[in-house]
């Protein structure tokens, strides 16, 4: 990356941090005071982007029943990171390649054998993960491995943050511009095909989006927990609203809110940030599970009580 481009990137990131801090200063003091330091602000921006992006995509993951695929891709990213470290190339590229290769491999096994999708995924991603563990055990310290597996959001530097921000903005743009195509493909791929859409491009495009989102989330929540961010916000929103755009916006908001609360809890209680963020988002799901007006357990129980008994 040339120096001028890098400086520009830093400028953009700082502009976003400035915008974000306007919002943070509106928060209650107890929550806002953790974000005085520059490293905390970078961590917060990373967490916000990752939470929003994963939340957005989680609606597709839920509706397309791709939870296991998300899990598979996130594990398959590990050998890519290791190989990139070995070859001294950006880890982003390595992760993207092995993530994409694994999802292709899953497709090949599914199409050419009688093995079903779930087994094909389990088989491929454990193999990729094993390869990653073997390589890393040779080349890196266990601290490094722990950071990849569980994230290290407080150590995020400018290059990683630029990448995360770029990826987040690109996914947002793709999801908005191709909303119709993506919705049709997820709801009814047969109809999409019969309208002349190239469903292979949409299929692999969506998988690529997921892979990119997962790679960008490495430092925030780590590859083990990122799948939670790709499932739980969408699942929560699915219990609360009845239209796809609303579901996507709400899931995004839940992802971002969990990132903020989780991060400040992590700093305050001195616990792992990835775990804290995922626990918070799970807390949101529990609230929706219990109290969602239409589909919550309590609401449904109350409605059943109101059905009059036949005399």
């Amino acid at each position: 990356m040339s120096e001028r481009l890098y400086d520009m990137g830093v400028g953009v990131v700082d502009a976003f941090i400035g915008l974000m801090m306007i919002g943070v200063n509106l928060l209650p003091d107890a929550l806002a005071e953790s974000f005085q330091y520059a490293f905390m602000q970078r961590a917060l921006l990373t967490a916000l982007v990752v939470g929003g992006m994963c939340g957005l995509l989680s609606s597709y993951v839920i509706l397309k029943r791709w939870s296991l695929l998300g899990d598979a891709i996130s594990h398959a990213v590990l050998p890519g990171v290791a190989i990139a470290y070995l070859l001294n190339i950006p880890f982003f590229i390595g992760a993207l390649v092995t993530g994409a290769l694994t999802s292709l491999g899953i497709g090949v096994i599914e199409r050419h054998t009688r093995i079903k999708a779930d087994a094909a995924m389990g088989l491929m991603f454990t193999a990729a993960f094993a390869l990653g563990i073997v390589i890393i055990s040779q080349i890196a310290t266990s601290t490094h491995l722990m950071h990849i597996l569980f994230g290290n959001v407080l150590g995020v530097r400018y290059p990683a943050l630029m990448l995360t921000l770029a990826v987040g903005l690109v996914s947002l743009l793709v999801v908005i511009l191709y909303y119709k195509e993506l919705m049709l493909y997820v709801f009814d791929p047969v109809q999409a095909r019969s309208l002349g859409l190239n469903t292979s491009v949409i299929h692999y495009g969506l998988i690529l989006l997921l892979t990119v989102a997962i790679v960008a989330s490495l430092e925030t929540v780590g590859i083990i927990l990122v799948v939670a961010m790709l499932i739980t916000p969408g699942a929560t929103a699915y219990l609360l609203v009845n239209s796809l755009p609303a579901m996507m916006v709400l899931a995004s908001a839940i992802g971002m809110l969990s990132a903020v609360i989780g991060l400040s809890l992590a700093v305050r209680l001195d616990v792992a940030s990835g775990g804290a963020i995922v626990l918070v988002v799970t807390g949101f799901f529990l609230l929706a599970f219990l109290f969602a007006p239409q589909r919550g357990v309590i609401g449904r129980w109350l409605r059943r009580q109101r059905i009059p008994r036949p005399a």
């Binding site: 509706l63 796809l244 579901m247």
Partner: peptide, 28 residues
């Protein structure tokens, strides 16, 4: 060419309205 599938092929829990689904026939 328009195609009307059997309804069992679709997930009717999808968060869409009747209008959303019908309008998707115009996406082409």
């Amino acid at each position: 060419i328009a195609y009307m599938p059997q309804q069992e092929q679709l997930d009717w829990d999808f968060p869409l309205s009747v209008r959303d689904v019908v309008l998707s026939g115009r996406y082409g």
